[in-house]
């Protein structure tokens, strides 16, 4: 159930401005306190939007990463990466 932790973390980038700032300056340290699997942590820190989406996260919440320009994301990069998701392919 740690998809819950990912979703929670995404929402914290909206609600907790200090966390948002740390996600910009030192994302590895920012996410350290979250109980993520190694797979989730690496997908998150590499902004692998397609893999995160395959894990079942909520896209609306994941979008905050892009909205707040975290992890090097731009709307174009976000779009291209979410389209690497198999969940996307299945729903096409």
């Amino acid at each position: 159930m740690s998809v819950y932790a990912l979703n929670y973390l995404f929402r914290e980038t909206l609600r907790d401005h200090a966390f948002r700032a740390q996600m910009k300056s030192d994302p590895a340290a920012a996410v350290a306190k979250y109980n993520l699997t190694e797979d989730e942590r690496s997908a998150l820190l590499s902004a692998d939007i397609g893999r995160l989406y395959d894990m079942g996260v909520n896209a609306f919440l994941m979008g905050y990463l892009c909205r707040f320009e975290l992890l090097g994301l731009t709307p174009e990069i976000y779009y291209d990466r979410i389209h690497t998701s198999k969940r996307t392919a299945a729903s096409k």
Binding site: A59, M62, G63, C66, R67, P75, D80, I82, H83
Partner: peptide
């Protein structure tokens, strides 16, 4: 669609 796969490229 908001931030999901059916968004328009370059937007939310």
């Amino acid at each position: 669609e908001v931030w999901g796969p059916k968004i328009k490229r370059g937007t939310s």
